[in-house]
Structure formats: structure tokens, C-alpha cells
Computed example of a mutant assay.
Amino acid sequence: MNGSGSAAVPFTRHARPTVFGSMLRDPMVMTGMSILLAMLILTLAGPFLIANDPVTVNMSERLLPPSWEYPLGTDHLGRCLFTRLVTGAETTLGISALIIVMVMLIGIPSGLLSGYIGGRVDALLMRIVDGMSVLPDFMLVIAISGFLGPNLQNMIIAIVLINWIGYARVVRSIVLSEREKEYVWAARVAGCSMWTILRRHLLPQIIPPVLVFAALDIGKTILVISGLSYLGLGAQPPSPEWGAMLNDGRTYFQTAPQLMIYPGVAIMLVVISLNLIGEGLRDILDVRGQ
């Protein structure tokens, strides 16, 4: 039995409904999914409910309190905070999902090949990983973003260049433990090619830990994106993005704290919900020590 009281569930094609059912019964996962779903619905429905422009400046309406026209009030430039928060969600969550997909497309094949082939391929990957592990990830991302220039595209490149390493490590460690097992040897004896073994036999084994890793990593990625935008290395004005909104409201924290509170709470809720989902999945799929 795992920590949430649910039995570990093998991740196979026939077990997927069971995994989904376990997720629905897990209070940790359901809490995270409920928070995330509510924010996604608000993000999608928000533009239809409030049709204010998120970037149009109106100095005559700056720092207004909440009203029917401006549900969360306005910022220091007279822009609707609700509209900017909703539009910022599309930017922050969309970029985070794009980054996770990109790092998985790089990290999973790299880890599979490194762990299965070994030798020089594995040694080369480990030298790259060791070299990039000298400094904390966030410091490296800041350095690369600063070198490339402050904008969203360069920020995405910087994060992807660093984050794929974690996925490659996880996949490599699993492949190293699985490649000498009987089912892999049986596939080799049966004449299966390396690509067939990787695709049909080893790839299914890495799905559970990679799903858990991705669920936890997307929360970290959101924090990195927001942090870089707060430092001026990500989204540039007037683009609405949660980290950039924090930076915009920094000067007005004592007189208008809501300018920082609203995006700060949004970041906190999304990260907490994703962490709850990741922890719940780890218990359900019985993924430990990865």
C-alpha cells in the first residue's frame, strides 16, 4: 500500500482505466486537479466574460478598486487586472507546457540511447550532465537568458537547454536497471532490433516515472518562467505574464499590494495543484527512488 492508501497500479494498456480510477479516488490528486481545472476554466472563459484589452493604457483609470467593469480593479497604467491575469495564465501555462514537451522530446531519447548503448555514448552524455551540474539550474538559465537576450523565445531556449538533463538522467537510470532483465534478453534472442526493444519493451517502463517527473517539473518550470520575467529576462512589457506582473507591481507594493498579490496567488495555486497531482501520481504508480 502506498502513502495515500491506494495500491500501486502497473502502468499497462489494460491498467489505464484502473490508474484513472485510482486518481479519482485519491484526495491529493483530486484536490490538485480541481484547483487546476478551475483555473483553466477561468482562463478559457475569462475573455468572454470581461472584454477589456490587457495592454491598452488608460491613465485616467489607474489603480481603480474592483467593479463590474474591472472585477479585480486596474493597475498603475489603468489596465484591467483580471484580463491581464487571465491572459497571463495563457502565456505562463502555455509556455510551461511547451517547454515540458520540448525537454521530453530531447531528454527521453537521450536517456534511452545512453542507458541502452552505454560505452562512449553514455560517457559523453554523463560528461555533459556533470559539466552542467556544476552550478544550480536557475543560475545557468539566468546566464544563458542574459547572454541570448531578454525575450520569451530566448528564455524558452535557455530553460530547455538545462531542463532536458533531468529527464535524461531519470530515463537512463531506469534503462540501466532494465536492460539486463530477462524480457530484454528474450527480445534480443528473438532477433528484435535495438529500436524495437527501445520502443516496445523499454519505453513503456519509463512512462510512470517520467509522468510523475513532468507533473512535478512543470510547477518548477512555472516558477522559473515567472522568476525570469520578474528579473526582466522573460516576457517584456506590455505582454501580460504573471512574473512580469509581479515586477510591474513591485514599486506599488505598499500603496497597491494587489498588483503583486493577484499574480503571486495565481502562481502559488498552480504550483501547489501540480505538486499535489505529481505526488498523488507517484503514490498511485508506485514510483519511488527515481
Rank of each mutant, 00 (worst) to 15 (best):
V171I: 15
V141Y: 10
D130W: 08
H201G: 14
A89V: 05
N163K: 13
E180G: 13
F138G: 01
I277A: 06
M260K: 03
N52Q: 15
P54D: 07
R282V: 12
P10F: 01
G21N: 15
I50H: 06
A7P: 05
M132K: 06
E279M: 10
S6D: 09
V175D: 10
G46A: 02
Y70A: 07
M268K: 06
V55N: 13
N163T: 04
R169G: 00
K220P: 00
I128R: 14
L37N: 13
V271L: 01
I277E: 07
M23H: 04
L44W: 01
I218W: 05
L216D: 00
D248M: 07
D283R: 01
H76W: 14
L246P: 07
I225W: 00
I95R: 01
A8S: 10
S226M: 03
M1P: 05
L77T: 02
R62G: 10
P66G: 03
P150A: 13
W242V: 03
S6F: 15
I277D: 06
L112E: 12
P240K: 03
A244Y: 00
I277L: 07
P238I: 00
I206D: 02
T56W: 04
Y252M: 08
Q153V: 02
I174T: 15
P10A: 02
C192F: 15
A45K: 04
V9W: 01
D53P: 00
F11C: 01
G280L: 11
L49W: 13
G234I: 04
I277F: 09
S273G: 14
L72F: 02
L281H: 00
V210L: 04
G289P: 09
M28D: 09
L276P: 02
G249P: 06
I197K: 10
M59K: 09
L44H: 02
S4F: 11
G118W: 06
I267T: 07
K181C: 07
L112H: 12
D122H: 08
E182H: 11
L125V: 05
I222M: 05
V121C: 07
A7L: 13
V170R: 04
N275Q: 08
M33C: 10
G289V: 08
M59N: 14
